[in-house]
Amino acid sequence: MNYSYPFDVSWSKEEIVNVVQFFTLVEKAYEQGIDRDILLAGYRKFKQVVPSKSEEKKYFAEFERDSGYSGYHTVKKAKESQSSVIKMK
């Protein structure tokens, strides 16, 4: 891993942890697969920190640019899937 996670320095320690944990779940979805419910719970915590769609897009774009992993496509697949495990390609 040669990238950092996007966050805002004005966030509290707990908020930073929640955002970083969510991006870690996205990584896991690409690298080995992740339980759908765990991913969606992480996304809900992320949304408590980043409620606005425009901010979400900004952080997702920054993460995808640096890592190659799409938060948007991962969450979309988890919301639409009936499968209990989400595995991204």
Rank of each mutant, 00 (worst) to 15 (best):
D35H: 02
D37W: 02
E64S: 05
K45M: 10
N2F: 10
Y72F: 14
V20H: 01
K45P: 00
F60V: 05
V49S: 07
V26L: 02
G33E: 11
T24G: 13
V49G: 05
I16T: 14
G71D: 04
Y30C: 05
K57L: 14
K87V: 09
R36V: 06
F22L: 11
T24D: 10
G71R: 00
K89P: 11
D8P: 06
S12F: 00
H73G: 01
Y72A: 10
V49T: 15
S84I: 10
A61P: 00
Y69C: 10
A41I: 01
L25S: 06
R36K: 14
W11Q: 09
D66Q: 14
E56M: 14
Q82E: 12
E64Q: 14
G71Y: 00
E62Q: 15
V85A: 02
L39G: 03
Y43K: 02
L25D: 02
K45L: 13
E15D: 15
S54W: 12
F7T: 07
G71W: 00
S67I: 01
S70A: 05
D37I: 03
S81K: 10
F7K: 05
I34P: 00
D37Y: 05
V50A: 08
S81W: 07
I86C: 04
K58G: 09
S4Y: 07
V17W: 03
D66Y: 06
F22C: 06
